[in-house]
Simulated scan of single mutants.
Amino acid sequence: MRIVTPEILNYFALLQSRIGEARSVPFRTVSLGDWQPKLADCHKNVDSWNAGHENRVRVRGWLTWGNDESGSCHLIAHSVVDDDGVLYDITPIDPNTPRPKFLTHVGEKEAFDAMQPQWSWTTYPIIFELSNEPAEIEDEAEQ
């Protein structure tokens, strides 16, 4: 079950307010021996690719699409590579799917990593009625 806290609501509201900062990150085909990045495994892909390379850094953020005039957008937690200041995406997607834009996470990486398992895919504003899992709103007075 996903718990919707005021912090989560504020975080996603901030992401939506920054949606204009989302940018295209080019895809780069990479491999290490027999290893190749796997579809839908971006965080492990980037960690594997960066291992042993101090000049490469994992950049956490969100793939975003469906941004419309109502302020609605879809967000998927995602990681890309920063290689000496150059961002690129190594995770393959379906070849018939346009690559969404990437919006960098602002904040501590630990906060992103803690949030990511429950919030790896969401729509903002958060739609409680259509969620596959029940959501609870945590009252600030209960904290």
Rank of each mutant, 00 (worst) to 15 (best):
V4A: 11
T5V: 07
E7L: 00
E7A: 09
L9K: 11
Y11T: 15
F12L: 10
L14M: 13
G20V: 14
A22Y: 02
A22N: 05
A22M: 03
R23V: 12
S24M: 11
P26K: 02
P26V: 01
F27M: 07
R28M: 15
R28N: 09
L32I: 14
L32D: 13
G33L: 06
G33P: 02
D34N: 13
D34M: 09
W35D: 08
Q36W: 05
Q36H: 13
P37T: 07
A40D: 13
A40L: 14
H43Y: 12
K44V: 07
N45D: 11
V46K: 02
D47S: 08
W49D: 01
A51G: 00
H53L: 12
N55L: 01
N55P: 00
R56K: 12
R56P: 00
V57Q: 11
V59C: 04
V59T: 05
G61N: 07
G61D: 06
L63V: 03
L63R: 02
W65I: 03
G66F: 05
D68H: 05
D68M: 08
E69L: 12
S70C: 04
L75G: 01
I76Y: 06
A77Y: 09
H78A: 02
S79L: 05
V80L: 05
V80C: 12
V81M: 01
D84C: 14
V86H: 15
L87P: 03
L87K: 04
D89W: 01
D89R: 01
D89A: 04
D89F: 03
I90A: 01
D94R: 11
P95I: 11
T97W: 13
T97H: 10
P98K: 09
K101L: 10
K101V: 04
T104C: 13
H105R: 05
G107H: 06
G107W: 05
K109E: 15
K109M: 11
E110K: 15
A111W: 04
F112S: 06
D113C: 00
M115W: 02
Q116W: 09
Q116F: 08
Q116V: 07
P117W: 06
W119N: 11
W121T: 10
Y124A: 03
I126E: 07
I126F: 12
E129W: 08
S131M: 07
N132R: 15
N132H: 15
P134D: 08
A135F: 15
E136K: 15
D139Y: 15
